[in-house]
Design a protein around this nucleic acid. Structure first.
Length: 214
DNA sequence: ATCCCGAGGG
DNA sequence: CCCTCTGGAT
């Protein structure tokens, strides 16, 4: 196989190659419902999945529904999520999110991007995780890794995450967007570091425009 | 010391 | 656009 020569080609080839490295890439947050994944994803900002998974069992034991969470005492939530970090804003957001779910969305996690993003603590990255992982809908979570790697791979020159989401999303089958994101993130964490990427060990180096240059 | 699979606010 | 929020891993 030759090198892909277009942006779309590089995007699809990137995903194909990463499939062999990460065959069963999956969301590593523990959850049993869309509501739980929404909570876990809000908590995962600037934190590891492991630390979130350590805290959520107790949290879900007490606050297992929007109704319970909506009337929780903020300090009680803070106590349960303290080890995750950013606990004050996250506790406030969780309670506000639950209240809005009840008031505006009949206690159900909404499907639409605009609705999801209207919830406290939910940005596009979180909304796309919920859509692609819990709801089985198209969704391309764009984080710092995805942003860096699509740029390095010459998939798009865009730096605005919202534009990346749209442009790269259009290059992929809608049911592959979530997996693409998951795999690219793993690649970013294990090989294509922000500084000193390990190009020698990179499975994509044969067509990466920036291999051995960064 | 520095970095995380972000989001809100100024 | 830049700052802040936070603990834990490395």
């Amino acid at each position: 196989m030759g090198k892909p020569r277009t942006a779309v080609g590089r995007c699809l080839r990137t995903h194909e190659e990463l499939k062999s490295t990460f065959p069963d890439a999956r969301c590593e947050l523990d959850f049993e419902s869309p509501f739980q994944l929404l909570v876990a994803t809000i908590l995962s900002a600037q934190a590891t999945d492991k630390s979130v998974n350590k805290a959520t069992p107790k949290l879900f034991k007490i606050y297992d529904t929007p109704e319970r969470l909506a009337v929780a005492e903020i300090p009680e939530i803070e106590k349960l999520i303290k080890s995750i970090g950013l606990f004050r804003s996250k506790a406030k957001n969780l309670k506000g999110m639950a209240r809005k779910l009840i008031v505006d969305f009949d206690s159900q996690v909404p499907n639409g991007m605009d609705d999801l993003v209207s919830l406290p603590g939910v940005g596009r990255k979180t909304a796309n995780v919920v859509r692609s992982v819990a709801l089985g809908l198209p969704g391309l979570p764009v984080d710092t890794h995805v942003t860096r790697i699509v740029q390095r791979m010459g998939i798009t020159g865009e730096s605005d995450p919202v534009k990346i989401e749209r442009v790269v999303g259009e290059m992929l089958p809608s049911d592959a967007q979530g997996e693409f994101s998951l795999r690219v993130i793993l690649h970013g964490r294990q090989v294509c570091f922000a500084r000193n990427p390990n190009c020698t060990e990179c499975i994509l180096n044969y067509f990466c425009p920036n291999a051995f240059k960064v």
